[in-house]
């Protein structure tokens, strides 16, 4: 069981795109050799901004609900596990339905076509977290974008931040086990993800700061 006091906090604004998390992730025993974390670019042509995306471990996971094979299970400690190998029928429903874009239809190590016929996703390094260790990504993240620890530790280290775990996608509210950090003084109760559909990257490459929409 993952200890209740241990929590995952994400501050994507701290991400420096070093890919340490991406490399470390593949060391995890539950998905050996295959990295489950996404290091997403916001607008590759104009910005160096990156976002590390791990599974947010929803309280009512859409991926599990839309799975026709009932292959995705949530453990009593709130971790949404990767698809059960014997059940997953590689339909990609979870890949397309996850509001955070997390599950991967794994094509295999170096394979160009979908060979595994298996959905794989971040399971918060369950082999490690279930015995009290940190997930691989949070262990190696040099900038603190991925932080795993107690709420007290986080508050001590990030006095201006506040964790929230409620997200809004259109009309849908999603509650998660993993937290995202927002300003302590802001009135935000939930992060309205789809409101950012028209947003521009926070960091633009040199010479692009003055660009405005015509």
């Amino acid at each position: 069981m993952v200890p209740e006091k241990m929590e995952f906090f994400i501050d994507a604004n701290r991400c420096i795109g070093c890919k340490a998390c991406f490399q470390a992730c593949s060391e995890c025993d539950t998905h050996k050799g295959v990295s489950m974390i996404h290091l997403e670019t916001i607008d590759r042509e104009r910005s160096v901004q990156t976002v590390p995306v791990v599974c947010m471990h929803c309280e009512d996971p859409t991926c599990a609900q839309v799975c026709p094979a009932d292959a995705i299970k949530r453990t009593p400690d709130g971790v949404v596990q990767t698809a059960r190998k014997s059940r997953c029928i590689a339909c990609s429903n979870c890949v397309l339905a996850c509001p955070f874009g997390v599950p991967k239809m794994e094509s295999g190590r170096g394979a160009s076509v979908s060979g595994f016929n298996l959905m794989m996703k971040c399971d918060m390094c369950y082999d490690r977290t279930s015995v009290g260790k940190k997930p691989m990504c949070a262990t190696v993240c040099p900038s603190g974008a991925l932080f795993y620890g107690t709420r007290e530790q986080m508050q001590k280290e990030r006095p201006r931040s506040r964790p929230i775990n409620e997200f809004r996608f259109g009309q849908q509210t999603v509650k998660t086990k993993v937290n995202v950090l927002v300003p302590r003084d802001s009135a935000l109760e939930q992060l309205k993800v789809t409101d950012a559909l028209g947003s521009q990257p926070d960091i633009l490459l040199l010479g692009m700061y003055q660009e405005e929409e015509p």
Partner: peptide, 27 residues
């Protein structure tokens, strides 16, 4: 929202968090 691709959904998570911090000094 189903008409947004998985990669853009991941980007939106970062963008929406960035929006929350705009104009506010960081830790």
């Amino acid at each position: 929202y189903q008409q947004v691709c998985p990669a853009c959904r991941r980007a939106l998570l970062g963008l929406s968090q960035g929006e929350a911090w705009k104009g506010i000094s960081r830790d």
